[in-house]
Write a protein that binds this DNA or RNA. Structure first.
Lengths: 201, 201
DNA sequence: CGTCTGTTGTACCATCTGGTACGTGAGCGC
DNA sequence: GCGCTCACGTACCAGATGGTACAACAGACG
């Protein structure tokens, strides 16, 4: 195996460690030297592999976004479940405390993206739509008119993120569970699984 | 009253300008010199009035939090309205594009607080509870059992914040309005105004 | 008048920042 | 062997950073 491009194995390993570090520490006000020493390398090597600090941040943000999409795919495609059960399961997964570091990182990046900071700002292009489209499809499949499905998908996404913000701040798992259950109990009939029009064609 | 020379500025004025600057630019990766020159003063003066950069950040974050509480008080105490109408009105106010800079700042601070950065971390103590308690009271007054009222208050708060995150990222005002309407339409009967004002005193 | 107190400007400091120059091996094809 | 690329360490740079020392100027008060 020829190590062709500047970084095939080393770079990937380094990126993985960088994401883990970012999840644990955040990536605001972090210098190359700090991150490098936490990763067991030198700031010289980070610049070597990623070109610049900006390049490193781009790589980390892209990787976080990639994992987010991956998680969405893993959580959303369970077509056998009713939407309400699927929603409950997604919440149970996201609210797990082992996920918190990544969610903290997610909201940190989100907050900086909203302020236009490069390269986080690219986050905004996909952060809603990539979740909204699949969730809308679930609602449509369950028999909701498209526009209504999209509104509910949007609401479900927003409530989930808002409750995660709450959970991360208060660590009140029970209170947030109750709120999510209130939303699930209030879902339209089509989404709660009672009379799903399974053959939507 | 000594109308001081144009260069002379009091601490309160400086703080006000600092918050405005933070709302427009963010307060991540901002140096004293940058902020000072944007405020028409020198970094020397910021340190003179606030003690240190940390002291300035503390003052700004406290002020943002204070305004947030003030806004909550202004939005929440309209006891004549039904909860659903009150919610709709609150959303209409918060979604106004003139509020966006402050909301961006809010989420930026929130994101950094979640990563434990001082002094933003103090934000977390009040960011949920100070809104949750009044909203719960509204639900109880409308006839909901306390626990159910609290769950719905939490859900309403989370959905509002989640939709603001969505709105700030996508600027899709209509889509977010639809989602909020979907939530309002799904509120429990007691909150939607059908059987309002159960003789509370 | 002099003195004191609150502000402000200038000049400076040690430290840290991202980035670079350069040397040095290790591995590999020839 | 030779050359060549990748990977990495050491040493360094110019610039920016937060913070400080010190002087100067204003007005209030005796």
């Amino acid at each position: 195996m020829s190590a062709q491009s500047p970084g095939s194995v080393t770079r990937a390993t380094l990126l993985d460690a960088a994401v883990a570090f970012a999840a644990g520490t955040g990536l605001t006000d972090v210098s190359l030297r700090q991150m490098a020493s936490a990763l067991g390398t030198s700031h010289r090597m980070l610049i070597y592999h990623f070109g610049s600090k900006e390049g490193l941040l781009v790589a980390v943000v892209d990787e976080v976004e990639r994992r987010q999409r991956e998680a969405m795919a893993a959580l959303g495609d369970d077509a056998a479940l009713t939407p309400s059960e699927s929603m409950r399961r997604m919440w149970r997964t996201l609210a797990e405390s082992s996920m918190w570091p990544f969610e903290r990182l997610f909201f940190e990046v989100y907050g900086q993206a909203l302020q236009g900071r490069t390269p986080m700002v690219a986050f905004l292009d996909t952060v809603v739509e990539s979740w909204l489209e699949p969730a809308t499809a679930v609602g449509v499949r369950a028999g909701l008119p498209r526009r209504r499905a999209r509104a509910w998908a949007r609401l479900g996404l927003a409530a989930t993120r808002g409750l995660l913000l709450d959970l991360l701040a208060t660590e009140d798992r029970k209170g947030c569970d109750d709120a999510m259950e209130a939303l699930i109990a209030a879902l339209p009939l089509e989404l709660s699984g009672g009379s799903a029009a399974a053959g939507g064609r």
